[in-house]
Simulated assay, not measured.
Amino acid sequence: MNYKNNYDVINFVDRDFKNVNSFLVIDKEKNGILFDCWKGSVEGINKYLEENNVKLSHIFLGHGHYEHINGLEKIYIKNNDPCVYIGADDLPNLYDAELNQSAIYDTEKFAISDKVSNIKAILKDSVYKINGLTIKAFIRTSHTTGSIVYEIEELKMIFTGDALFCSQRTTIYDEELTDAWDDTLRWVFKAFPKKYIVMPGHHEYGVTLKQISKKNPYVKEILKNKK
């Protein structure tokens, strides 16, 4: 996907496992920013970076469940220690297979080693200027209490992780988060222009908020029942 200002957004999806998405944003100088890193996409991501001479500078994680983080170490080591960002509440998930759910749902328990050292915990809503882009990180409880919605102003794009899918709702693991999650969805549709493009953690991507508000039955119900 080619966007204005000479940026490309490349999707890596594992169609054999939950349609997990990772997204690589590349500028004209071939600097890269990665959003999420499922192990099933690691080989493709690393191959693309190497073959296209892309320097990976930053990795942003949407939340701390295993299918979005368990490719982290292989990508990190292969690409000269890029800076890794994750919500503070989800930081322990990187080191605990029970918390990141790989001990429950995956055949391989995952926890990073001390080889991954360049990690920044996002403690509050923050703004980062990286590779000519303005990346805003918003901590919003949804799939986890440490979930992050990332905005790239210049691309009119948000990376929503598992907080918002284009056509459906994600699995609810913690019923206690339901009300806060619903509030987060209402916030998304209030905070960003309807023409913004949504890049979620699974399934379909590249759909506008306006389109989602019309096609996603759960979102339609949430927006109808405004608080």
Rank of each mutant, 00 (worst) to 15 (best):
K74Y: 09
I77R: 15
K78W: 11
N80D: 15
C83L: 13
Y85C: 12
Y85V: 08
G87S: 10
G87L: 03
A88P: 09
A88E: 15
D90H: 04
D90Q: 09
P92M: 01
P92V: 08
N93V: 09
L94M: 05
Y95W: 00
D96T: 03
D96I: 00
D96R: 02
D96N: 10
A97R: 04
A97I: 09
E98M: 14
L99K: 11
A103L: 10
Y105W: 02
D106N: 10
D106Q: 12
K109M: 03
F110S: 05
A111G: 09
A111V: 06
S113P: 10
S113Y: 05
K115N: 02
V116F: 03
V116T: 09
V116W: 05
N118A: 07
L123E: 14
L123W: 12
D125C: 03
D125E: 05
S126Q: 13
S126W: 10
S126V: 15
S126T: 14
V127T: 13
I130L: 14
I130G: 11
I130Y: 00
N131D: 12
N131M: 05
G132S: 06
T134C: 12
I135T: 03
I135M: 09
K136R: 13
A137D: 09
F138M: 10
F138K: 01
T141G: 03
S142K: 05
H143I: 10
S147M: 03
V149I: 14
E151N: 08
E151M: 00
I152E: 00
E153P: 15
E154F: 06
M157N: 02
M157H: 08
T160K: 12
T160N: 11
T160R: 12
D162F: 07
A163S: 14
A163I: 04
F165S: 09
F165D: 07
C166H: 00
C166D: 02
S167C: 02
Q168C: 06
R169Y: 09
R169C: 01
T170E: 14
I172P: 00
I172E: 03
I172T: 07
D174T: 08
E175N: 14
E175R: 13
E176S: 13
L177D: 04
T178G: 02
D179C: 07
A180Q: 00
W181E: 08
D182A: 08
D183E: 15
T184W: 13
L185A: 02
F189K: 04
K190Y: 15
P193E: 04
K194M: 11
Y196M: 08
V198R: 03
G201D: 08
H202R: 15
H203I: 07
G206R: 04
G206T: 07
L209A: 01
L209N: 01
K210A: 13
I212A: 01
S213Y: 02
K214C: 11
K214A: 13
K215M: 05
P217S: 01
